[in-house]
């Protein structure tokens, strides 16, 4: 089973421990409310997400599933919600997709027991469930979408220390292409 330090005992850079853990534990269930129109609302991070194709509860679960698949403690829920939007869009456009997501999340809830997926307070316990469904088309659809819809958000690149577009700044020829001095 994975613990939240990674399956292969990844060494930690000391700085990472200093970052606030976001809502990847219980907090997420409380932080995201379902509004009257079926929208998901996160008051702390000040964002809302209109849900068109899926049940709001399903979407909420998929956002947490997204974080559990690609957990980055420094990335706020907002970006996971953006990353999960394609699931709702696909469901709105195609009843088969909708069925796949709804059934997949229902399966996760059933596997989790009485409290459902959200009832499992530890990421490690939820990840254990994800491993059990990792061979399903729904899991692969979620993961393969996320790997683009999450990491292609320019807004989060600075969190990874990636500077993106550089032509307009003249390249790195005067901006540190060879500034490494620790060797």
């Amino acid at each position: 089973m994975l613990d939240h330090h990674g399956a292969r005992g990844a060494p930690h850079s000391p700085s990472r421990r200093l970052f606030l853990r976001r809502s990847s534990e219980m907090a997420f269930a409380a932080a995201v409310a379902i509004g009257s129109g079926g929208a998901l609302i996160n008051a702390t991070e000040a964002w809302g997400l209109e849900v068109k194709g899926l049940k709001p509860e399903t979407m909420k679960t998929l956002i947490l599933v997204s974080r559990d698949i690609y957990p980055h403690d420094r990335i706020p829920d907002r970006n996971y919600a953006i990353a999960a939007k394609p699931f709702d869009e696909k469901a709105a456009a195609d009843p088969k997709q909708k069925d796949m997501f709804e059934k997949g999340v229902a399966q996760l809830d059933a596997l989790a027991g009485p409290g459902g997926y959200f009832g499992l307070g530890w990421e490690a316990d939820r990840v254990a469930l994800l491993h059990r469904i990792a061979d399903t088309p729904m899991f692969e659809a979620v993961r393969s979408t996320l790997v683009v819809s999450l990491y292609n958000q320019k807004e989060i690149w600075p969190i990874f220390g990636y500077e993106g577009e550089s032509f307009s700044k003249g390249g790195y020829i005067h901006r540190g292409f060879d500034d490494l001095d620790w060797l």
Binding site: L2, G6, R16, F160
Partner: peptide, 9 residues
């Protein structure tokens, strides 16, 4: 999972 995302971090 975290083995992967910690590498990305």
């Amino acid at each position: 999972g975290r083995s992967f995302t910690s590498a990305m971090d």
